[in-house]
Each structure stands twice: as structure tokens, then as C-alpha cells.
Design a protein around this nucleic acid. Structure first.
Lengths: 351, 351
DNA sequence: ATCACTTGTGGGAGCGCTCCCACAGTACCT
DNA sequence: AGGTACTGTGGGAGCGCTCCCACAAGTGAT
């Protein structure tokens, strides 16, 4: 189809100027049409659109970025080492949501890894140079300096998994508290009474919320919380094994375990098996994340599903809104928004 | 006026010009230093570098892209719907490799989803506008028009998982043939003789190679290939169940199954259990991918591990080389390169 | 001394846009 | 009639770089 005149050498795509000439209008007018300005007559707009179509014109992003001082790009920052243990489906599901929501826009998505010190260095330069219009932050640690850097540079940012209840950045999260509650309520409704909890890493806010949900569900049902039934894990399989061994030694009569993640549950399961406990007959088991592991475990693991894809979509929505709002410097004091999406229990045969 | 740049309101990062003034040299010289040209005296270079450090200068990518007609960006194109079933760890592992290799360079990584028709439309425009210097293609179907579009536009590209033996694009692959062989050789060495194979989707080249490895391993060991022991699957769990049921009906005396993926193996395992076959006592089971599912299956699944992270690194290496080589239009006929990295059997208790 | 190089350097001319000012044309008041 | 207010429109002036030509200064052969 590109068999037409070989004008400019070296990939010569048509420019605004050429479109303008073709449509018999000025450069400014074409720019207005491209950017959807209302101050263009219907007839002119049609003529320009025809010329655009005929020439197959596509705006040059670099030129636009340079002239307009915006980039039409957002960055998804991935703290690399985390990726591995922070749940297998998490990352790709979130990406799916992000991608879906972004496909309606002109925005492009940059993936930036911030694992090594060198990478973090580069990232800081990147942000300082304002090479993106906004930033998406995933699974950031409580002591990470990144969010503050972002705030200081006044770069719009949304974080998934707030660092604390006092998160300063706009955030999106799943209802870890509610998820913890429903796991316990489910076990109670199945007649379990001595329900243990293997927590996630307690420096992760979401893990704290799950514990809170666990405690409140027990209390609200009129049960005392037995501290000996709570043991901290770290989201890993090994941590699950360790914690389960501990719990079994302390409270051999426990009849259910709510694990802070599916991987943790897998570790706990091993120890339970080796101790001769049958699942779910002797001990019921519930995980968190509803990952592939949960579906394929034997027996299939009851787990709490987080709406990760939706969280990805929501992050983009909030970020784009923030980018759009940033223009009028007058409208300072946008109230920070904290979105919490419901988590849902998926019952399987392990409980 | 003080140091306040009345100029561009907003970011106001230092420019080349300002660095030049500070270092007492011309714009061109600073540009040469920044871009590592050898034609700069040691003294001048030092002065410029000092000025850069003092001002915290970071080049403006947009301006550079516009002036130099390159983007310093590469795109990773993800055929969205595939992502889900094309193995959980696959995507994030590959990303890890890509990210690691990219962190040595100035290149930035763009993630582009090409699932829906609208997204593919956008992608085509993107490429036509030469908004990236090169493209990484993952798990592309045999009939996908994308690779041809890329070739036509003369955009450097590397594909992971070649579409056929006659792949025209530079490709990186794991040794599916060798992986298939070692799975079968492993089973033979364990004394198994009636080894079935549930294939992957046979329109995927890698799946074909695995079948070829399966056949050759049997033949080379002096065994006849029994066509009734081969049943095609589609990488899914449901496909695994269907195929296993079929195989069990045809050859109830089979004593081993080599599945085209871990998920397929999970499906097969269910059917075997329901049929009262013990694993590995009655039937040995081997999967492919070495995913989380394999590690957590009961019993843990022997599987073939692909060096996915390394594949990611290799893709970047090849792509960057191709981008660098593209300059001299004279050097047409770069021999297309096809890199195959070894796959490794990870023995667990299912075999 | 002249010439022919080489090496280092400065700065003009764009790259393709957006922003914004100027201004023609029309409409509706006084 | 003049004034005031729009609405559309054209095009100049950059945005911050890279490319490349011009040229000063140094080197060595003639």
C-alpha cells in the first residue's frame, strides 16, 4: 500500500505540513483537528481528516513531546527481586488490566525495573528528567524512598498495595481485611473452631490487614483470639513449613489453617501430610491469592481471590485522572484517593 | 535576573546549551562528549563531564529522537490472549532476562499488547511510524501477519519461539527437541517401556519439535513408535484430561506419560488418579516448562526446564546487534540467526 | 616557507510538532 | 454608522537535540 511517491529519504512518513498542503489549510488547523480542538469548522475538519486518511498520517511522538513538554507515556515500575515471590499470576494479571485500560488511550506503557542499585539510579534520572507523565508502582516496601521522590518531583503516581494506612500516594488495593474475614468466617461456618493463621510478611501492609480480618472475624463470632494460633510467615513455601511445624507443636489440636498466601499454604500442607493429618478431614486449609498453585493442589485449595486485573484497570483510571488534573496548578489539594476492591473467597475441597 | 529560568515554565531541566556555557565550550562539543565521540580532547571532556555532573544534566529523549531519527526504545509485543495459558512463569521470567540485559543500555522497553483487533491496528500504526528501533515478539502463531509486516517495514525484530524451521526472523528458542528426547530417555532409563505422549498444540513449532524428540529417542533406543500412544493436546488442563482418557482407553497398559506442558500433565494426573493408577508406581509422569505447578504437584512433577530468562537476555543481545547493524544499508543479507538454548530435565518424584 | 593533512571545536540549520498572536470574517449590539 | 465580540484560520517562534560544514591550530613533508 505504501507504493506512493518516495518523497523523503529514510523512512519519510508524511508530516503535519504535508497534510496541511494536501487539505489546503494551514499547519495550525491540522494540529487543531488532530488534537480534537472544537474551534474548527465542520467542513475544514472533514477536509483535514480526508487528507490524514489519504496520506496515512501518524503524528510524530518525539516532535509532539518536545513541543508540548509531555510524553504521553507512563511507567510501570517493577521492583525486580519482588516479582519472583510475589505470586505468580499477580504480575501478568495486573498487566492485563493495565493493557486493556490503556488501549483506549494514546498513552504508551514503559516497563522499568528497579531492582539493582544501578537500575534505581537510572530510574531516578528518568523521573528527574520527566520522561514520563505518570508512574505506576507495584508492591513497594514500607521503607522504599521511591514514593517520596515521586511526591517531591510532583509526578503523578498510583501505588498498588499501599505501604500503610497513611499512604500519601493515590492507591489501589484489594480488601485484604475483608478477605481475611471471609476466610475465617468460611472456616467457622464449616464448624472449625481452632483456626490457626500463618501470616504474610508483617512489614507488608496487606499482610497486616489480613491478620486484622482474622482477629475481627473470630471476635465478632464470639471467639477468643488465641495468640498461640498465630505464627508469622513470609509468603514463601519454606516459611509455611516452618510456621506449620511451630503451630503443630504448640497447638496439636488445631483443626484449620488460614495461610497468608497459596505458596505458604503449600508449605503448610506438606508438614500437615507428614504429620499424618488429612486435608480437609482433620485440618481444613485456606490460602490467599487464588493462584495456579491453588487450583492444582491436591486437594484443590480454597483461596481468597483478589481482583488483580481490575486493580490494574483502576490504577490506570486514577493515574490518567491525576495526570489530567495536574494541569491547573490552582487545583492543588486534590484529595488523595484510596480505592479498595473486594476480595472473594473461592471454596474448593481443602476446606 | 537570578538563576530563575523564565523560559519553559514547569520542569526546567538544564539543556545542552546550559552545560556548554558552564563548561565554556560549544554545543557540538557537549553533544560529542555525551555521545562518547572519540574526537574530543581529554581536557575538554573532563570539563564537560564536570559541568554535566554539577548541573545534573540528563539528555532530553524527545529532542534527541526528533533530531536523530531514532527512538532508543524497543517494543515487547505481547499477543494478549496467549499470555494466560502460555505458562505462568514464562512471561515474567522472560521479562526478567530482558530487563537485566537492558539495564546496561540506554534503551527503554515499551510493552505493547496486540490482543484485540483495535490493539493490532494501533500496533501497525506504531510500527509504520517507526516509533521504536526494534521489536521483540513472543509466542506468535504460525499464521500471524505481524512478522511479515515487520520484515516489510525493515524493522529489526527477534522472535522467541520460531514459527517454523524456515523462520525468516532472527529467533531464540529453547531446545524443544532435546527436551523431548531427554524426557523419554529419562523414562526409558527408569525402565518404562510403553511411554505415551500428549502433545502440545501442533500448530506451535515447539510442540512439533517435542514430538520429534519423543520419536527419535524411542527409535534410537531401538523401540518402535506406537502411534496409538500419541494423542494431541493443546497445552490446557482440559486437553490433558481428554487426551489421557483417550490414551487409557486405547492402551490401558501404558506405564508412562510425557505431557506437552505441566498444565497438561496436571490434567492427565487427575484422570490417572480417577482410574486408580498410582504415580509413579503404575504410571510415571513427566511435564514440560518446570512451572510452579510442577513443583507443587502431588507428587512433585518431573519436568523439562527451559532457560527462559536466558532466552530473554539473548533476544535483547540479538536485537541490539541487529539495530546496530542496520545502519549501513549496504550490508544487506545479514545472515538470519537462530539461537537454540538447551533445555534441562528436572527429575522429581513423579517418575 | 608552502602545502596537505589531521585533530578539535563552534555554531547554523533543521527535525515535526504545539503554542500563541495576529487578523479576516461574521454577528449582534448601540 | 461605528463599536465590540466572538469564531476560524494562518503562520512565526520556538522546544532541545544531532548533523555537518567551516575553520583554527598543530604536524610533518616538501
Amino acid at each position: 500500500m505504501a507504493s506512493h511517491g518516495t518523497r523523503g529519504r529514510g523512512g519519510g512518513r508524511p508530516t503535519l505540513e504535508e497534510v496541511a498542503a494536501r487539505a489546503g489549510v494551514g499547519r495550525g488547523t491540522v494540529s487543531r483537528v488532530i488534537n480534537g480542538s472544537p474551534r474548527v469548522s465542520e467542513a475544514t475538519r472533514a477536509a483535514v481528516e480526508a487528507a490524514v486518511a489519504e496520506l496515512g498520517y501518524v503524528p510524530n511522538t518525539a516532535a509532539r513531546a518536545l513541543a508540548a513538554n509531555r510524553t504521553d507515556a507512563i511507567a510501570l515500575v517493577v521492583p525486580e527481586p519482588e516479582t519472583r515471590f510475589f505470586a505468580e499470576p499477580y504480575f501478568s494479571d495486573m498487566l492485563r488490566g493495565v493493557g486493556a485500560e490503556l488501549s483506549d488511550t494514546e498513552m504508551q506503557l514503559l516497563l522499568i525495573f528497579a531492582g539493582s542499585d544501578r537500575e534505581r539510579q537510572r530510574l531516578a534520572q528518568y523521573l528527574a528528567a520527566h520522561r514520563v507523565d505518570g508512574v505506576l508502582l507495584v508492591s513497594v516496601h514500607a521503607d522504599d524512598p521511591l514514593p517520596d521522590l515521586l511526591a517531591q518531583l510532583e509526578i503523578p503516581a498510583v501505588i498498588s498495595g499501599p505501604r500503610s494506612a497513611a499512604e500519601t500516594l493515590t492507591s489501589v488495593d484489594s480488601d485484604n481485611y475483608g478477605g481475611g474475614r471471609s476466610a475465617v468466617e468460611h472456616l467457622l461456618s464449616r464448624g472449625r473452631r481452632r483456626i490457626a493463621h500463618i501470616t504474610g510478611r508483617l512489614d507488608v501492609y496487606g499482610a497486616q490487614r489480613r491478620v486484622a480480618g482474622y482477629r475481627d472475624a473470630l471476635r465478632d463470632a464470639g471467639h477468643e483470639v488465641d495468640e498461640l494460633l498465630i505464627e508469622s510467615g513470609d509468603f514463601t513455601e519454606e516459611g509455611g513449613r516452618r510456621a506449620m511445624t511451630e503451630l503443630l507443636a504448640r497447638r496439636p489440636d488445631l483443626d484449620a489453617v488460614f495461610a497468608g498466601s497459596d505458596v505458604t499454604a503449600a508449605g503448610a500442607r506438606q508438614v500437615l501430610r507428614e504429620a499424618g493429618r488429612r486435608i480437609p478431614d482433620d485440618v481444613a486449609l485456606v490460602g490467599f491469592d487464588d493462584s495456579a498453585i491453588a487450583r492444582h493442589m491436591d486437594p484443590p485449595l480454597t483461596s481468597v481471590r483478589q481482583p488483580i486485573e481490575e486493580m490494574g484497570r483502576a490504577m490506570i483510571d486514577l493515574l490518567l485522572a491525576e495526570i489530567a488534573d495536574r494541569r491547573p496548578a490552582a487545583s492543588r489539594g486534590l484529595e488523595r484517593r484510596h480505592l479498595v476492591l473486594p476480595a472473594e473467597l473461592v471454596a474448593r475441597t481443602s476446606s
